[in-house]
Each structure stands twice: as structure tokens, then as C-alpha cells.
Design a protein around this nucleic acid. Structure first.
Length: 485
DNA sequence: TAGCTCGTTGGACAA
DNA sequence: TTTGTCCAACGAGCT
């Protein structure tokens, strides 16, 4: 048993259960110093956005309290170089080792790799673990040994590995170590917005923290899983898990969700790899797939995976983008989604696709503008998921929808919000528009929604314009061939 | 190897 | 009102 303390660096793993870095430190018998570093410099433009900071504040508060109850104090530091801060702290407390759970963002991989070297030269060992994925991104391979670029083969390859590891229980007691200097106060970090307090609506919808994440999963399994397969498409209905922010901050791990879901199905005598349960597990694997894409394509957040898409004739004026961001496009389902996002930090997945498709295809705005807005406003903003999903909708990713697959927001609204409950909840100006034309109020007789804007684009003309632009992409290439001939 | 099938989430139009 | 077919072409993945 070593008396040298172990520094456990918390990042996107803000939980005590199924936290292998923490458990290994506790099991060693050494005193443990848990640390969180707020570093907005290292991630560059991918530092946590406004909404994420709100969640981070509450999640750290919850983690801090849970650690305290078990005997350890979470040490908080602000820094412009997290790796350097960890290195200094480790030296100051005479650490025997530094533990962390791996992150997979390109800047995080580079940072951690360098830190490992630096600590080694200081004579301090490091141990890193996997807490945030079912399997490491390099472990899921096709039969020819390459990373799958299409979801279905990815799913088959992942399933061929069997079930992921069983989750670990939370340590019951932690022998806490103290830092040589006092930590900072969470309140001093100003992670919560004040003037104006645009997050005031968040409290009503969200409860960050490990305990609430577990409760949310229980609620989902008990009340929604059965109807998930079809129900998840209807944004007015409570058939989605809403676990995504908890997952992003690591308040719950995917292995915990995987095994709890399977155990729940077995207890109910149902097959977890059929019907609704399988669809839910597949969503978890979509997350893994996004991480794999990001791991193997580090510029996924910035560059089109299919380079010819860089020639797409994007509309660079701000007018369309601003209307979209504020939920003032005059297209009801789009405005409902964008306003839900602004007011709650979340948007239902079906509506995310509709809004993204509308921005990219009807308004022809660069998908990276939408990606940046989601990054700032989503509580669950996650680099891998966000960039992979935007590229998927744009058709610029490896596994892309055919270019002619353009969502018609009127038909989508009519199909997936048939009673208009979702649309009217977020766009109250439409209260008096009859159901028949709720999704196309410009056809309503007698102007029942005088405060609602006219559509920013004619949907049919917008569709044709996008189709023509996509078609031109394919025609642009042959010049190269001619040059060789 | 060469050939075959498939691609999370759709829409327009004809019958 | 519902159902079937077509909308490009290509790269991934498998055999």
C-alpha cells in the first residue's frame, strides 16, 4: 500500500460509479485527490458553449457533494493550460500517479499524450481508462481491419465483440488527500448566466448530476422503452430518454445504460435485441459510431469528409442564419424546434433533423454555421455527435443520405406532430391557426396569426435550388480527368 | 477479383 | 386515401 497520493483528474466523467480511474485509485489504498480543471484555451473554439457551462456548473456541484460524502474534496482550478496545471499539482502533492478516463476529442488526445510524457519525465506514472465508450474506437473494425464508415457494418462489428464490460460500483469510501493550496470556489467561475439569465427556463426541464441521471434511466426504462421504436419520432410525446446531456458529462456511462437495459428486458422476459429495446441500444451505438468517425477523422468538426462538398455554393449572408437561430423562419416546425432549443437547451431528435435539413438545404447555409449554433445552445453539445450528425444531414459525411432526400418541413410537421401540440407549445402565435394548415399558416384564411412571420423561403423553390446545387457538385469534377488526357 | 447489395430517419407523382 | 415506384451515382463491405 502506497502512501503517495494519487491524483484523479475528472473531465467528462463526472460520476463515482463505473469510473475506472477513480476505482483503481481507491483500490490501491493510496489517498486520492480528485481534481477538475476549467480550461477554455486548450479546446480552442470547442470550449464548452453557453448552455454546456450551465450544466457543467450543476454537475460539478453534484459531483463535489458526492465526493465529500465519501471522504474526498474535489479540488477546483481555473487554468489556460490544464495539462500544465495537473503536472504542477501532481508535483506539489508528491503524487505517486495520475489517473484519468480517456477523452477522444483531437485536442484532448494530443494534450493527454503530452502530459503522459511530461509526467513520466517527472518520475510520476499515469494510468488512463475507458469510461465513456462501450468499446475503444480502434477496437471496432470490419473484417478487413479498417474502421467502418457505414453504420450497419459498424453495428455488426461492435456486436461481434460481445457485450461491453460490466460497470463498476461506486467506491463506498474514499481516503481523501488535500492539495497544498486551497481550491477555487465553483461560484467564482461564473458558469451560470446572469445578465440576462437566459437559462432561467433550464431548471424546469433538467436536473444535472449522477443521481438524477440514474433516475432518468430508470424512468425511461419503466415508462417509455416499450413505446420507444415508434414513439421517439413524435416530439410532443415523452418517449425519448433525454439522457444525452448526462451522457456527455459522464454522469452516467454507456456501459451502465447498456447493461441496465438488457437486465430490464430479461426481467420482463423480453429480447433486448429486438423491437424498441434494440432501437434504443442502437442509438447508444450511433454515439460510438460518431466517436469512431471523429477518432479516425480528426478534422470531422471542421472539414467535409467528402472534399467535393467544399465547393457547395453556400449562402454566406447572415439574414437566413439569424432567422433560423431565433426561430423566425415562418416555417412552424422549424421555429418550434429552434425555440425549444433556445428556451430549454435541448431539441427533440426528429426536430433536430428537420431544422438541420432546412438550414442546409432550403436556406443553403453552411452546415458548420448550424454546428456552431448547436454547440453554443445545446446542453448535450458533444463534439463527436454534433459534427457527425451535421455532416450526415449535409450529405458530406462518409455515410450520407442521398442528396435528393430533402425533408419537407410541412409534411414532417403534419406527420410527426399531427395534433400540433409540440408546434403550438413553442410557437404560441399559432394558437388560433386551424389544425388543417398549422404547418403552412400562409394558407390559412383570414390571417389568424398576424404576429407570425411569412416564410423566409418558398419551400418548393428552395428544394429545387438545393437539388440543382447538389447535382452540380457531381458535374464539377471531370475537369481533372481532362487535364490528364 | 469482380460482382453484388446496400445505404437510420424522404418526397413527388402516378395509379 | 393508400400504395408503389422512381429519384444518381458511388463507395463501403462482403463474398
Amino acid at each position: 500500500m502506497s502512501e503517495k497520493p494519487i491524483l484523479v483528474w475528472f473531465r467528462q466523467d463526472l460520476r463515482l460509479s463505473d469510473n475506472p480511474a477513480l476505482t483503481a485509485a481507491v483500490d490501491s489504498g493510496a489517498p486520492v485527490l480528485p481534481v477538475y480543471v476549467l480550461d477554455d484555451e486548450t479546446p480552442g473554439r470547442w470550449a464548452p458553449g453557453g448552455a454546456s457551462r450551465w450544466w457543467l456548473h450543476h454537475s460539478l456541484a453534484a459531483l463535489s457533494e458526492r465526493l465529500e460524502r465519501r471522504g474526498a474534496t474535489l479540488h477546483l482550478v481555473r487554468s489556460k493550460n490544464a495539462a500544465e496545471t495537473i503536472r504542477t499539482l501532481a508535483s506539489e502533492i508528491g503524487a505517486g500517479a495520475v489517473h484519468w478516463n480517456r477523452c477522444y476529442e483531437p485536442f484532448a488526445i494530443a494534450r493527454d499524450k503530452n502530459l503522459k510524457q511530461a509526467l513520466k519525465s517527472d518520475g510520476i506514472g499515469t494510468e488512463s481508462f475507458n469510461a465513456s465508450l462501450l468499446f475503444e474506437p480502434w477496437a471496432v473494425k470490419t473484417k478487413s481491419g479498417t474502421a467502418p464508415k457505414v453504420f450497419s457494418p459498424y453495428w455488426r462489428a461492435l456486436r461481434a465483440l460481445g457485450d461491453p464490460a460490466e460497470p463498476l460500483p461506486a467506491p463506498e469510501h474514499i481516503r481523501g488527500a488535500m492539495a497544498s493550496t486551497e481550491g477555487e470556489k465553483l461560484e467564482d467561475w461564473n458558469l451560470l448566466p446572469t445578465k440576462p439569465d437566459w437559462a432561467s427556463g433550464f431548471n424546469k426541464h433538467w436536473k444535472p448530476g449522477e443521481a438524477h441521471a440514474q433516475a432518468r434511466l430508470d424512468w425511461f426504462l419503466e415508462t417509455a422503452l416499450e413505446d420507444y421504436k415508434d414513439g421517439r419520432n413524435f416530439p410532443a410525446k415523452p418517449y425519448v430518454s433525454r439522457l444525452s446531456p448526462h451522457l456527455h458529462f459522464g454522469e452516467i456511462g454507456p456501459r451502465q445504460i447498456w447493461h441496465r437495459t438488457i437486465a430490464f428486458c430479461h426481467a420482463e422476459d423480453r429480447n433486448p435485441f429486438a423491437g424498441s429495446a434494440e432501437h434504443f441500444l442502437k442509438e447508444l451505438v450511433w454515439r460510438e459510431f460518431s466517436y469512431s468517425l471523429l477518432y479516425h477523422n480528426p478534422d470531422l468538426p471542421e472539414a467535409c469528409l467528402r472534399p467535393e462538398f467544399e465547393h457547395f455554393p453556400w449562402d454566406r449572408s447572415d439574414k437566413a442564419l439569424n432567422a433560423w437561430q431565433r426561430g423566425q423562419t415562418g416555417i412552424p416546425i422549424v421555429d418550434a424546434g429552434m425555440r425549444e432549443l433556445w428556451q430549454t437547451g435541448y431539441m427533440h431528435n426528429r426536430v433536430r433533423m428537420i431544422c438541420a435539413s432546412f438550414l442546409i438545404k432550403h436556406l443553403m447555409v453552411d452546415w458548420r454555421e448550424g454546428e456552431a449554433w448547436f454547440w453554443d445552445t445545446l446542453l448535450d453539445a458533444d463534439l463527436a455527435n454534433n459534427s457527425a450528425s451535421w455532416q450526415w444531414v449535409a450529405g458530406s459525411g462518409a455515410d450520407a443520405a442521398p442528396y435528393f432526400r430533402i425533408f419537407n418541413p410541412v409534411l414532417q410537421g403534419e406527420k410527426f406532430d399531427p395534433d400540433g401540440d409540440y408546434t403550438r407549445r413553442w410557437v404560441p402565435e399559432l394558437a388560433d391557426v386551424p389544425d388543417r394548415c398549422l404547418q403552412k399558416p400562409w394558407e390559412a384564411p383570414g390571417d389568424p396569426a398576424p404576429d407570425y412571420p411569412d416564410p423566409i423561403v418558398d419551400l418548393a423553390a428552395g428544394r429545387d435550388r438545393a437539388l440543382a446545387a447538389y447535382k452540380n457538385l457531381g458535374d464539377a469534377e471531370p475537369e481533372k480527368v481532362a487535364a490528364w488526357g
